[in-house]
Write a protein that binds this DNA or RNA. Structure first.
Lengths: 163, 163
DNA sequence: ACCTACCGGTTGACGTGTCAATGATGCTAA
DNA sequence: TTAGCATCATTGACACGTCAACCGGTAGGT
């Protein structure tokens, strides 16, 4: 690895120059990758990755409908974020909202025909883009390593619960 | 690796379920990592990573000053993005802008004392956070692998030049 | 019954990012 | 000279995200 400072990893408080270089390349490249995927999806289907996540969840839901909070939990968003996003999607005709018959204060989110159609159009090119930009860019060993790295980073994030 | 479909990597058009799982973990975890860094920096110094990037570049510049477009190129931002960001930073007193004496339409961006101080306060905790959340979360081998993965992804992004 | 506390969802304010359009000013070629 | 034309920077419109405040209603404790 040819580090600036040898062995004693527990001692240093700050990253070495080499570690910092790798860090920057890593975080900037993953951000750029996200952005490229976003723009590919946008070009292929006029959907954002947020739209896609919502439509995917609704497509797989029974009756193509979900309670707002269940949807938020399913895709891991804050309720407020989802509410803003649904407003924009409703304006574009991708989903509809209606009072939930069973739960008093609940709001049901429904997939519209236009939403289902947009999702159908988007899916194949989106998966192909993931393949081109991620899967095919790496060796099988690197894909495994990427999975392990993600798991290790996630574990660290979770262990320092919300700061 | 135990893939759903064996060997013939060139043949498939779509990722396997396992590849998709790794992809999702990878891209979501790196996004969460960025977000955590952002929030740590915010808490430690009331700066965003965007602020930090600008202040870092100015700190290292001769006379703590740079032309706007040079700054944009240095940190890899669009000029429009930088212009918006500088407006907000100027409002907070972190930087100043003035007409450039040499270049006709050029705008000089200057680091203020407040900006330099904020940057100084932010640096150590920020680097420590990078160490905690990235460097220390991975084995030395994983850090090397992360660097190689980033390089491979970057190469693929660059080769498909801007879509 | 009444006060309170929570719950589901929305809203507003604001920071951030992209895109397209707009000045303002020099450079170049008819 | 003047009609383009590229360049530097800003602006406006809009999408997206977070945070905190809010609102209507249900549930618990006294």
């Amino acid at each position: 690895m040819t580090e600036t400072t040898p062995a004693r990893r527990g001692g240093r408080q700050l990253p070495t120059a080499e570690e910092l270089r790798i860090w920057r390349n890593f975080i900037e490249t993953t951000a750029a990758l996200s952005a490229r995927l976003e723009s590919r999806l946008q070009g292929d289907s006029s959907l954002s990755t947020g739209d896609y996540a919502v439509l995917l969840a609704l497509s797989e839901a029974p009756d193509q409908a979900m309670r707002s909070s269940a949807l938020a939990a399913h895709i891991g968003w804050e309720r407020s974020r989802l509410s803003h996003h649904l407003r924009r999607m409703e304006r574009r005709g991708l989903i509809r909202r209606q009072e939930c018959p069973t739960v008093p204060r609940g709001a049901e989110v429904l997939l519209t025909a236009a939403g289902a159609e947009a999702f159908g159009t988007a899916t194949f090119p989106h998966l192909r883009a993931i393949r081109e930009l991620f899967v095919d860019a790496l060796t099988p060993e690197q894909i495994v390593a990427a999975g392990e790295i993600a798991a290790a980073l996630r574990a660290r994030l979770d262990e320092q619960y919300e700061d």
